[in-house]
Design a protein around this nucleic acid. Structure first.
Length: 259
DNA sequence: TATGGCCTGTGG
DNA sequence: CCACAGGCCATA
């Protein structure tokens, strides 16, 4: 579940379950996580209290009372779940924290690509641009940040060093809102288009946050263009197309998203 | 820029 | 069987 809105929602839910609680036992249940979480490191979590949970882009940091930081990244399919300690575990549990209130928080991750590791500080995370939903960002800043970027805007939006938190879905969604072609050259976007792009990013992320807020699923459509190949554009009715950029799918409207 | 790797699951 | 999957890194 991993783009900025989904990770932010996961962090908020995790805080309720975890902040102020003491860890009784930590377990790594898949070899992909045992590489970073050795038995000694897992033991070092026992007895620790979680002071806070923070987010930077799609990265999560669990702040422990010992001063240690546990870094979690969901990658493609990670999510937090929890259940009563001793109850049957949900499917795909890769990492588990048994807490002092008889609940167990688990990292569920079908593809087992998520990562959990100790870090010393935010400096140990990969270089990240400002938060993609930072309300203080300006079009001038974005224009300067795009200057010198080679390649198509869709591909550039996925680079976390530009903006932290935009993934493959919201890149397509933002460009649809901005009515910009995903193939447009990032470096040569005219100022008015950069302004539209910033607004489009905000709209896409705001929609994502709103969607996360409702735990009611089943509503008409989740995304405006993503995964809608062949379906009519919600703005002009033309058939949505799919193309591949940098080995990732892009969805766009060929009529109302212009270069 | 493209490919492969990490992993497993789903759907055609 | 194959393609594809909301991420990211290392490699030529």
């Amino acid at each position: 579940m991993p783009e900025l809105p989904e990770v932010e929602h996961a962090v908020r839910r995790l805080r309720v379950a975890l902040v102020g609680r003491a860890i009784v036992r930590a377990r790594a249940l898949h070899r992909s996580l045992r590489r970073s979480m050795t038995p000694a490191r897992l033991r070092s979590l026992a007895g620790r209290t979680v002071r806070e949970v923070s987010r930077r882009g799609k990265h999560q940091l669990l702040h422990l009372d010992s001063g240690a930081l546990l870094h979690v990244h969901f990658r493609m399919t990670g999510d937090w779940e929890w259940h009563a300690t001793g109850a049957p575990s949900p499917a795909h549990v890769r990492f588990a924290l048994e807490l002092d209130d008889a609940t167990t928080v688990v990292l569920s991750d079908s593809r087992a690509l998520a990562t959990v590791a100790f870090v010393r500080g935010v400096a140990d995370l990969p270089a990240l641009g400002p938060e993609a939903d930072d309300p203080t960002l300006t079009a001038d800043w974005l224009r300067a940040a795009l200057r010198g970027r080679r390649g198509a805007i869709k591909t550039v939006l996925l680079d976390q060093r530009l903006l932290a938190g935009i993934g493959n879905i919201y890149a397509s969604e933002a460009l649809w809102h901005a009515q910009l072609s995903p193939r447009a050259s990032a470096a040569s976007l005219a100022p008015a288009r950069v302004t539209r792009l910033l607004a489009g990013i905000r709209k896409a992320l705001a929609r994502g946050m709103a969607r996360e807020g409702r735990h009611e699923e089943g509503e008409s459509h989740e995304f405006l263009v993503y995964d809608r190949e062949g379906a009519p554009c919600h703005r002009c009715g033309a058939a949505i197309r799919r193309l591949v950029q940098g080995q990732r799918s892009t969805y766009w409207c060929p009529r109302c998203q212009r270069v």
